Simulated scan of single mutants.
Amino acid sequence: MLNQTNIDAKDLKGKDFLTLRDFTKEEIFYFLDSAISLKKAQKEGNCPQLLKGKTLGMIFEKSSTRTRVSFEVGMSQLGGHALFLSPRDLQIGRGEPISDTAKVLSRYVDGIMIRTFAHQTIEEFAEYATVPVINALTDDYHPCQVLADLMTIYEQKGTFEGLKLTYIGDGNNMAHSLLIGAAKVGMDVAIACPKNYEPKDEIVAAAKEIAKETGATVTITNDPIEAVTDADVIYTDVWASMGFEEEQEEREKAFSTYQVNQELVSHAKETYIFLHCLPAHRGEEVSADVIDGPHSVVFDEAENRLHVQKAIMAATM
């Protein structure tokens, strides 16, 4: 077990899950331990009904495959119910203040999950909601995904100590959350991005402060070979995230030397694993022989979204 402290679910009940910055290393380990236990129970056909009678409201301003299905299935496995809400279904899409929507939904549901654009939107929801708010993705952070990534790394490597995680690509919400998540658990992290596509300075600075406490190192570079050298974990994401599709052609030029392919991964450790939050564009950010090769664990990683989200919901709701 990762968590050797006295943290339990009652310590997290009612807490929002907006970024991993809001949680201690021990609390993150608690989520991971819980997810591992819930995964084992589900495989054995004995998933505990921890959220029986509870309802999760799910607000989607961005489209999704893995997020919607994993949260809905996760609530069902825990005995609860999930309610899908698009902007078309809500008065917020017609100009109702976020504060009013948050207050009203809090009277109906036991938790609110939001997948949106501006991180400020989810912070405002959390300010006015009286039930836990879970960040299923904003332009700045993707904490549920990174918790699943950490779970996958732990399953594959059995530890975070002495590991190096390398992310190649856009300094986007994935880069931000990986910086924070890796630093929190004491794993070295290197980010390689083209110039003008680096992660936000404020988030890099926060990760470096966290790393001082956990003994991790944080490296930001424009050189993908420098970043990937001796990596235990290699990670990438699409070059044009949702909301940046109009920049696709421009980004393809800027990122042309940042593809994760056999030449690049040859600089990593022979035992490296490959991660991608999906959906993936084979032939762009990653070559098919890497994502479909023996080092890739992307589908284990995708499955683990289900289990970490159950852990988050069970603890907070």
Rank of each mutant, 00 (worst) to 15 (best):
P87T: 12
P87W: 02
A9K: 08
S64E: 03
E27C: 03
A41E: 14
L18M: 05
L32I: 11
T55E: 13
G79E: 02
G79Y: 02
D22R: 03
L51D: 08
E44D: 06
F17C: 04
L50Q: 06
L90H: 05
S37I: 06
F17D: 06
T55N: 15
K39R: 06
M75Y: 01
V73P: 00
S63L: 13
F60L: 10
K62P: 12
S34V: 01
A35L: 02
F23Y: 15
Q49N: 15
H81S: 07
G79K: 02
F84Y: 13
I7N: 05
E61K: 12
Q42D: 15
E26W: 00
D8V: 01
E26I: 01
A41F: 04
R88T: 11
G14N: 04
K52F: 12
L32K: 05
I36G: 07
G53L: 07
V73A: 15
S76F: 15
F71A: 09
L18S: 03
N6C: 10
D11W: 03
S86P: 03
D16Y: 01
N6L: 14
M75I: 00
L50P: 05
T65N: 14
S70Y: 08
D11K: 00
L32W: 00
L38R: 05
L51E: 02
T55V: 15
L85A: 13
K54T: 03
A9E: 11
T55G: 13
E72W: 11
G79D: 02
T65Q: 13
M58E: 09
K54G: 01
I28M: 00
I28K: 09
K62Y: 04
T67C: 11
L78D: 10
L78V: 12
K62T: 03
G80E: 12
K25L: 10
E72S: 10
R88N: 10
K15H: 04
G14A: 01
L38I: 09
Q77H: 11
T55Q: 14
E26S: 04
F71N: 11
K40L: 12
L20V: 07
A82H: 01
G79L: 00
L85T: 10
L51F: 10
K62R: 07
I36L: 10
P87Q: 13
G57V: 01
R88S: 15
K43N: 12
S34M: 09
N46I: 11
D16Q: 02
L32G: 08
L90P: 06
G53T: 04
K62G: 03
S76G: 14
K43L: 08
K10M: 03
A35K: 03
K52S: 07
L78R: 11
A82R: 00
Y30I: 02
S37F: 11
L32A: 07
L32S: 04
S37C: 09
K25T: 14
L50S: 00
S76H: 14
K54C: 01
R88M: 14
D16S: 06
F29Q: 04
P87A: 12
L32M: 09
G45S: 06
E61F: 15
D22L: 08
S86E: 12
C47F: 10
A41S: 12
D89G: 06
R66A: 15
L38T: 15
R66W: 13
P87E: 10
G80L: 14
K25Y: 01
F23E: 12
K13R: 11
K40H: 13
L50T: 01
K15S: 13
K39E: 05
C47T: 15
K62D: 04
E72G: 08
M75G: 00
D22E: 13
S70M: 08
